[in-house]
Design a protein around this nucleic acid. Structure first.
Length: 311
DNA sequence: AAGACGAAAGTGGTTGA
DNA sequence: TCAACAACTTTCGTCTT
């Protein structure tokens, strides 16, 4: 199927549309021509304006230098087909010679990065992660590749691990489940590579704070802002009582939300809360019980219950 | 009938010898 | 490397609303 454009890398018309993944791949050279098709206004990766002779510090499209640019803008691309028409026949040999040369120095690392960062962007946009996280993850991945940490692991799993690490560092945690769903990599695999990569790179891993999950969970549950702030309060109390250490942060966040919802008369079933938090009802119950025991919230709940009865 | 509760057995990961 | 261990899940039966 002709996609309507040629591959900016090799000029081939043999572009393959993968709707599941939302990307377009060139069958000739393997370049991910376009990803994030769900998003509006995705630009084509224009190597032509970026690379080649015009690269003298002024970036073609005015992009800042970033890690998501696979070579950080430092590499040199030898021009493409379109340039041919501007060249005299005399220069053609030179052109082809340079192109050949380029393909030789284009190392496995660069090639890997190119593909990996496309994948990274795809997953990142799927999860609607902020740019800063994407940058962080790209940086982590780049370092991982340079240290040869990808060897023996799938590229995708390392990308996912890097993204997970990026999320954690920017305090916009996503659960392993969400990463897993977005990337198609198994949860434990992501966790493994995440631990491995962060350890090898000496990246500090601050344990994630349950409060970071509250906002997202609350909005999927359509809870009022009041209930949400209440949940955060409960969380703070729980941390004073040291109910939070050693426990899964999502379970705690879920329980806090569940209680907060009860207290505000916006009851959600344990099942509903459990689903958005990615834990089971049992876990919520356990945390919930602890909260009641240690924080003496019982009377408050009974009060609101009476109110409901009166109504 | 659906939700809440809890017991019991199972799973995967961490830790310490 | 192995066994003990804690957190969490799965499953299932019982109670409550």
């Amino acid at each position: 199927m002709y996609y309507g454009k040629n591959c900016p890398e090799c000029g081939s018309k043999n572009l393959f549309v993968n709707r599941d993944k939302g990307e377009v791949i060139c069958k000739e050279c393997g370049l991910v021509v376009e990803d994030k098709m769900v998003e509006h206004g995705q630009e084509w990766r224009d190597f032509d304006s970026d690379g080649g002779a015009s690269d003298g510090g002024s970036r073609g499209s005015g992009q800042p230098m970033t890690y998501t640019q696979y070579d950080q803008g430092l590499g040199t691309e030898v021009g493409h087909r379109a340039d041919l028409f501007q060249l005299g026949s005399k220069d053609r040999n030179k052109f082809f010679r340079l192109r050949k040369w380029q393909s030789r120095i284009s190392t496995a690392i660069e090639r890997n990065l190119k593909l990996a960062l496309a994948e990274l962007k795809r997953v990142s946009s799927y999860l609607k992660l902020p740019k800063s996280v994407e940058e962080e993850a790209a940086m982590i991945y780049t370092q991982a590749v340079q240290r040869g940490l990808v060897r023996g692991r799938s590229m995708e799993s390392v990308v996912s691990g890097a993204l997970y690490a990026g999320c954690r560092r920017h305090e916009v945690p996503r659960t392993l489940d969400e990463l897993s769903e977005a990337s198609g990599i198994e949860k434990k695999e992501i966790g493994r590579t995440y631990r491995f990569v962060t350890r090898e790179l000496g990246i500090s891993i601050l344990p994630s704070n349950p409060a970071d999950y509250i906002a997202r969970f609350a909005s999927s549950l359509k809870l009022s802002p009041d209930a949400q702030t209440k949940a955060v309060e409960i969380l703070e109390d729980a941390q004073h009582e040291e109910l939070t250490s050693g426990r899964g942060p999502t379970g705690i966040a879920a329980a806090a939300l569940y209680v907060a919802a009860l207290m505000h008369g916006e009851k959600r079933t344990q099942r509903e809360v459990a689903d958005v938090a990615g834990v089971t009802e049992v876990t919520i119950r356990n945390r919930y019980k602890e909260l009641l025991d240690r924080l003496k919230l019982e009377q408050k709940i009974k009060k609101t219950k009476k109110k409901e009865v009166k109504k």
